[in-house]
């Protein structure tokens, strides 16, 4: 079943194109990994999907509705009010390269604040959910610490729990391990793998090709703001079609 459909997406920074006519479908339970060199538009694509960056053209469709606007009865595109957009963003969890845990909140409250303030659940319910999710990312014993007391890998796992607390339909991972050493990277990927095994739909931007091979159903290769190739993981590594894909993979494999 189709969950996400990116349609003719374009994004410019000034006159520099960051994304050029991107079309991509993601199905429920699918694990899509985006690869490509830095500056190829992978992160921009993720940031456009939840409208942290507003696309200049094209549509994002997620499970029955468009993000960032809707089409009215006269078939006109109407932009979302900020509150509508905020409401739609609940369905999309995001994990950032820099973790961005809320520095003034304890670990448990970093996870609980979404359910508490956005979903207006009771403090007890929110914290209970947070504890459950922290256990899931193997950090239950750190619940009462502050972010700066945790390692990078631990912080990133908290960030994952924070996103999961909103029960999103789609999880976006924007280079989740680029700031981490190999051991911490492994820690984080283990958690991501466990989530993948549960069937959570995810899109991951990463430079860790081994991990991509392991977790992905589908690989998207991007270059210069364009999608060059979309292929199943088996096919793309054994038999890449596009010359540019072949060249990129020859560097990283």
């Amino acid at each position: 079943m189709l969950l996400l459909s990116v349609q003719n997406l374009c994004k410019y920074y000034g006159s520099t194109p960051a994304l050029v006519n991107i079309n991509l479908d993601v199905h429920m339970g699918e694990h899509v990994v985006l690869i490509g060199s830095s500056g190829s538009g992978k992160s921009t694509l993720l940031r456009c999907i939840n409208y942290l960056e507003e696309p200049d053209d094209g549509r994002i469709w997620l499970d029955g509705q468009y993000i960032g606007g809707h089409i009215d009865q006269a078939n006109q595109w109407v932009k979302d009010q900020p509150s509508e957009l905020a409401h739609k963003r609940r369905d999309i969890g995001m994990v950032f390269q820099g973790f961005h845990l809320f520095a003034h909140l304890k670990i448990i409250d970093n996870v609980a604040i979404g359910p508490r303030r956005v979903l207006k659940k009771s403090k007890a319910t929110s914290r209970e959910l947070a504890r459950y999710l922290l256990d899931k990312v193997h950090l239950g014993k750190h619940a009462d610490k502050y972010p700066w007391q945790l390692s990078g890998g631990e912080q990133q796992r908290v960030a994952i729990a924070r996103a999961l607390a909103m029960n999103p339909k789609l999880m976006l991972f924007d280079e989740p391990t680029s700031a981490l050493d190999p051991r911490l990277t492994h820690e984080v990927f283990q958690v991501v793998q466990e989530l993948a095994n549960e069937g959570i739909t995810m899109m991951i931007v990463t430079h860790e090709i081994k991990f991509a091979q392991k977790i992905a159903d589908t690989i998207v290769f991007m270059e210069k703001g364009e999608i060059v190739e979309v292929e199943t993981v088996q096919k793309i590594f054994s038999d890449p079609q596009d010359e540019r894909t072949q060249k990129f993979l020859s560097y990283v494999l």
Binding site: H100, G114, R117, R162, A165, M166
Partner: peptide
């Protein structure tokens, strides 16, 4: 990133300001 993280869990700008940015 603090504001973006707040928006990403569905907060609006006002919530992000009150719960995340102002306390810091």
């Amino acid at each position: 990133g603090q504001r973006e993280a707040a928006l990403s869990i569905g907060m609006n700008e006002r919530m992000a300001l009150f719960y995340i940015l102002l306390p810091q």
